[in-house]
Amino acid sequence: MGELRAKWKVNVYAWLLLLPSLIFLLLFTFYPVWQTVILSFHQADLGSPEPFFNGIDNYKQMLEDDVFWKVLTNNLWFALGTVPTSVALALGMALFANKALRGKGFIRTAYFYPTVVPMIAVANIWLFIYTPEYGALSHVMDWFGKGDMNWLGDQSNVMWAMIFMVIWKEAGYFMIFYLAGLQNISQELYESAAMEGASAWTVFRRVTFPLLMPTTMFVSIIAFTNSFKLVDHLVIMTKGGPDNASNLLLYYIYETAFSFWDQGMASALTIVMVVLLLAVAAVQFFGLDKKIHYN
């Protein structure tokens, strides 16, 4: 009896300690999610003054919506284009910045600075870089006689232009994680490998890379979620155009919510995005995670 009481007391204490964060979690995470789920089963657009329940109509409509499929495929290409490259580049830059004897600080800063610049500013910079005729890139392309390439105005170029910019923006950020990861690897391991005469490539393949896997895992997840979260540049650069060629899921949600004022559909799209992100993260965590060495 007394034991039970004591246990209960401990539990109450624990719950009380958790309460503040729990309230915030409920208020700002679970409640909105729940509201979004509910709203996604309602018709709530300009044509319906009072939202009413419409079952899975929003989801059905979504499946028939060409733009939805377009932004979804775009987003997958965008993720496929940005994640591996920016992660690989970050690793390369980290290895280099870690090795460089002279100007270490300068190299790190140079690599890192795109991260510090806000996305809106980055978008403006690159808008200029991509400007046909007299943009910075056009000057370079001029040497190949292609100065009039319309990077953002052409459906087949615009996605590449976006991917390139985002890689430039993100790689430096991921490099920081890799630098931290590299610092964690004991110098002894490299010396031991040197005693055996292992080549730089072997050392990388068999020592550095496997030991950086936790970082790679973490960075890939961040990069992947970012590829769904980063849409600021679209507002500045293309508004998703031409003809949705650069449109992404989150920007489409924004358009649906704040331009079409279709809250039901926007909620349904949000749910799809959240489920998608969770699914990918789950695969990464419960599948790949087992193969990774953690210290």
């Binding site: 509201q35 979260k229 989150l250 924004y254 809250q263 926007a266 949000t270």
Partner: peptide
């Protein structure tokens, strides 16, 4: 993700 949906 949700704030865009719920603020409305």
């Amino acid at each position: 993700g949700c704030s865009s949906g719920t603020s409305t």
